[in-house]
Design a protein around this nucleic acid. Structure first.
Lengths: 217, 217
DNA sequence: GATTATTTTTAGATTTGTCTAAATTAATAG
DNA sequence: CTATTAATTTAGACAAATCTAAAAATAATC
């Protein structure tokens, strides 16, 4: 059993692993809002518990055991987000902080029952995949909207940026999960994208397009 | 804002206040599974924060501020219990430990939405009253089953003992919340009670009868 | 009312997670 | 390849919550 704090470190290392391998001390410190020295201390502890591989000055990677623990926390986080949005009418930009707390509740029965109650969702309200109880993710087949060509069509199935300002912006534009879009034109000058959404034309910056995930069809 | 630990102390002091006034150090230590010395330390801290009145060697009582905090935790605990039983099909003897964790989640929005989602329940799965967001309890009008006389009728509306063995025992006898019972005879010899429950006769010990709460009608 | 017994408190130590400041290692630039 | 900069680690300290052992206060008993 790990402490609340240890769980947070594992989760952060897991997420950062998708960007850089191995994960460096400073990156963790920034995400966890703490100092590099504190991170070093905690990494040593996690290393003794065989949850991470650690080589001085080289950064950390999760062991199989650590990865499973981290994935389980991600599973709980995302299931709670679905609960908050689907059952308690939270908006998709309001769920993160509360889910950060709920993800640490210890009860396998609770989480399996919650999964069932929510009808075994495959993605959270941001389109991020929810692993099953064994830590397996369903295959996801989306591409960044910024990679589409003129005439390409598809549904919005996720976002790769979860800040409230970004999500609110998408909300205002009507670009929410499940919506169908068609690329009318990719502007050569600035890379911005001209879209067709429910018969309406709209233009989004390349920066925004990069963070919208599309399942082509 | 209080820590997880401070919240637990306040909750325990609140519950013990219903038995003895003021609450003594040892009683708290036993409930919190810690040592008397640790309790003294924490009480001093809570006293400095003006959450309890504390006089050395005389025990503690909650201040108005401390009482409100405690009631809010009780509110959260009981609402989560309703959620677990009504929505996730937990049994009434399975909910306590999980609710002990969930009661510390910090989010007013969450708890108000949960209250709404559960349709503003007035009692938890054990019949204990759920205070509203201002800390007010609905008036409860029940008596111990052991106080009823021959011929008295009423509905089971609560229990005053929450241990799993006791609840499982009631479950097996069919004595669950809402059930209507009639007292056929109070046995003079041992104080045991002969009941009529759905046309079936059954006998329960005085010890059990003392912990079943009845609304007469 | 003096003497035990019980309860509570103090004093000092421990653990977990954090910090600052200094030292060390690695990376980068000339 | 050396000098500078950046990242990381060590050493020592601190706050929160706990503990043990001893001292102090209160309660119970003869």
């Amino acid at each position: 059993m790990q402490s609340y704090t240890e769980e947070n470190y594992l989760k952060v290392i897991y997420h950062l692993s998708e960007i850089s391998h191995p994960v460096q001390t400073n990156a963790i410190a920034e995400r966890i809002q703490t100092k590099a020295a504190s991170v070093t201390d905690m990494i040593k502890k996690l290393s003794e518990k065989e949850l991470v591989h650690y080589v001085k000055y080289q950064g950390v990677t999760l062991t199989e055991k650590g990865k499973l623990t981290a994935i389980n926390i991600v599973r709980k986080h995302r299931l709670w987000e679905v609960f908050l949005v689907d059952k308690l009418n939270f908006k998709w930009d309001e769920v993160h902080e509360v889910a950060e707390e709920l993800e640490h509740i210890q009860s396998n029965l609770l989480i399996e029952r919650l999964d069932e109650f929510l009808d075994f969702p495959k993605v959270d309200p941001h389109g991020d995949p929810i692993p099953d109880k064994h830590g397996n993710f369903a295959e996801m087949t989306f591409v960044k909207l910024s990679k589409l060509k003129n005439g390409d069509k598809g549904n919005i199935t996720g976002v790769s940026e979860h800040s409230s300002p970004f999500l609110k912006h998408l909300e205002k534009l009507g670009l929410t999960l499940g919506k169908r879009v068609e690329v009318v034109d990719v502007v050569e000058f600035d890379g911005s994208v001209e879209l067709l959404l429910e018969q309406e034309k709209l233009n989004i910056s390349r920066e925004v397009a990069k963070h919208i995930l599309i399942t082509k069809n």
